[in-house]
């Protein structure tokens, strides 16, 4: 099973911002029931969706040379639920990026209406750094994640911007 909580990118401006979408389906095993009985996508999985969108944005900005680790959730606030049939969109923006970390802010949309804010900090971990006793290869940007970006660049592009544009 792939732990991937975005379906595909719809915008990717290298080093600046990215948007990814996810369709919520009734067949997913991670839906929770509200007291009313309505199934909803847990908010933590919307945070994960934003983390994957923003994490790939941050990783790509430095050529995927490092492992990009979610280090801190600066803010996570949701005003609504996402239910089967809803289309979620995660808009992530890089606020700050250097060799230590990437700081991002993001808005979660449900069917094009904003329903949440998720701001994150990612740490850059060089795979050659053995002080943390982590694997000596890039264990974050696996083939599954990389295929998301490759698919975006090869097919179904709604909007593309190159570095330095706009």
């Amino acid at each position: 099973m792939s732990w991937i909580w975005i379906d595909h990118f719809v915008e990717f401006a290298s080093g600046r911002r990215a948007s990814a979408v996810k369709m919520v389906t009734a067949s997913e095993g991670y839906l929770q029931e509200l007291p009313s009985g309505d199934p909803v996508l847990p908010a933590v999985l919307m945070i994960e969706g934003m983390a994957q969108t923003a994490g790939i944005l941050v990783g790509e900005a430095r050529g995927f040379a490092e492992n990009v680790i979610l280090a801190k959730i600066r803010c996570a606030r949701f005003d609504d639920y996402a239910k089967p049939g809803d289309r979620l969109r995660y808009d992530a923006v890089i606020d700050s990026l250097d060799d230590r970390a990437g700081v991002t802010s993001g808005t979660v949309f449900k069917n094009e209406a904003p329903i949440g804010q998720v701001d994150l900090i990612f740490s850059h971990i060089n795979p050659a750094d053995r002080s943390l006793d982590l694997p000596d290869h890039n264990f974050v940007f696996t083939e599954s994640f990389m295929s998301l970006l490759a698919t975006f660049r090869n097919h179904g592009v709604e909007k593309v911007e190159q570095p330095g544009a706009g």
């Binding site: 280090a71 801190k72 606020d95 700050s96 230590r100 970390a101 700081v103 900090i121 740490s123």
Partner: peptide, 9 residues
Amino acid sequence: SIDFLDIVF
């Protein structure tokens, strides 16, 4: 440690 970056930001 990561909070120091957050505080600066």
